[in-house]
Amino acid sequence: MRSMILLNGSPRREKTSFRFSQAIQKQAEACGVETEIYHIIDAFESSLRMDEVIGKIEEADYLGLVTPLYVDYLPYPVLWFMEECIKREIRVKSGAKFFAIAQCGFPDVRLLDPIMGACEIFAKKMKREWVGGIGYGGGAILDGIPMEELGKRGELITHAFSMMVEDLVNDQKIREDVQVEMTVRIPRILYRPLAFYLNHRSKQIARKNGVHDLWTQPYID
């Protein structure tokens, strides 16, 4: 039986990246691929956990990274994990594959390009076949809600992941249609109303927290 390890790259264990991982896991298991999810932050915090994850990765046919965008790139714990993998010269199963899902709050998935570039390079260094990456923009609105509770949006994402898993088990690169299915199309003309809504939400949350001045500068001389 083939196996898959999904690495949740978010330091927050139960948010959007984890929900994406769960959705992929469901699809993979439906295709007969034994799938486990590990949080990179757990490996970062515990060397025992790191050893366990490495052992699993060495036996896995498929390795997937599911990560948020932090300041235009991979989060620090993910980079640390990647550097550790290379340092430890971990073994790779013959024919092993690597893919990535990256998500961000911004609508434009092209902002995820530096992450995809890094993941492809990492795959080469790990001697795993790079089978592609998928970006999701507008992830902040999902806010860690399970796919089943997201209605039409959840169905589209789930369908995209089922297409992706189908490609993986058929030993193919992830087809472009998956990205098309995942892409949230927000017309440029809606950016201002979207910004207005998001800003209103932030100010509401701040007021609930007793904060009235979002613009403070505690470090200015």
Partner: peptide
């Protein structure tokens, strides 16, 4: 590293 910043730099950049 991997076509981007090292983990050491990123630990500070993330906090920005």
């Amino acid at each position: 590293q991997f076509g981007g910043y090292s983990a050491s730099l990123k630990k500070a950049v993330d906090r920005l």
